[in-house]
Computed example of a mutant assay.
Amino acid sequence: MNKELILKNTQAFILKQFAGEGTGHDYYHIERVVKLAKQIAEEENADVFLVELAAWLHDLGDYKLHDGVDRSIELISGFLLLEEVDSEIIQKVLEIVSQVSFSKGNKAESLEAKIVQDADRMDAIGAIGIARCFAYGGSKQREIYNPENPDETSIQHFYDKLLKLKDLLNTDSAKKLAEERHQFLENFLEQFYKEWNGN
């Protein structure tokens, strides 16, 4: 099993699948998650190949991108079988991917799953996290904010998810990196309400 070739082919496949995707779950999101996951994996002495492979594939088949139907097992295993990846590795990748999502609420069990989950969550906070929040909200026809009915707005997503992520991170490496990004979320909201109220 040529690990380098598998990773190269996976990257090319993901680029083809996610190029131009408009909800904030695009190729560049996945690429950022991969870079961050590799960095954390090296600091935490994890299996870097497994982390990188799962990070590249973590959004493939995601229900948010398939009209509410989760196709991750089917699409990930189908791709990895074509790449002749060992069945044991395929199983581990599927386990990691099933534990990454915030909305599924699954607990990350292995160190590798914790790392990919942390890297994905890190990309949901800070300046890029804010940009992705509004891109996704716009794709779902959500208002930016509505003081009369705030629950279904993009600003509400900060309270439902983004502001919680820092305290849900698993690894020390990610927790350190998250501080500045979390503070940026707080500062943004403060400025947002100031401007909303005409100040």
Rank of each mutant, 00 (worst) to 15 (best):
S72Q: 12
F13Q: 03
A46M: 04
L65A: 10
A19P: 00
D26Q: 06
I14K: 01
D70T: 07
E43D: 14
I6A: 13
L65F: 07
A12D: 15
V48W: 01
I14N: 01
H29W: 03
I73A: 06
R32D: 12
E43Y: 01
E31I: 01
Y27D: 01
H29I: 04
L36W: 05
L65D: 10
V48R: 06
E44F: 05
V69Y: 04
E21Y: 03
N45P: 03
D70W: 06
L36G: 07
N45T: 01
H29F: 11
H25E: 01
A46T: 04
G24H: 05
L15H: 12
S72G: 00
L57M: 15
G24D: 04
Q17A: 09
F13G: 00
T10W: 01
L36A: 08
K16T: 05
L15S: 09
V33D: 04
E52M: 10
K35E: 14
Q11M: 01
L60D: 11
Q17I: 02
R71D: 08
I6F: 09
F13I: 01
R71Q: 15
V51Y: 10
A46H: 06
V69F: 04
H25R: 08
W56F: 14
A46Y: 05
Y27V: 04
E52Q: 15
Y28A: 02
L36S: 13
I40K: 05
D67R: 14
Q39A: 11
A41Y: 01
Q17E: 14
E44C: 05
Q11C: 02
F49V: 02
S72V: 00
Y27C: 04
T23I: 05
Y28G: 00
L15G: 07
V34I: 03
K16W: 00
A54F: 06
L65Y: 09
A46S: 12
N45D: 13
I73W: 02
A54M: 07
D47I: 05
E44M: 06
D62S: 14
V48H: 04
K35R: 13
A55I: 08
G68Q: 07
Y27G: 03
H29E: 00
L50E: 12
T23G: 14
G68L: 05
L15K: 15
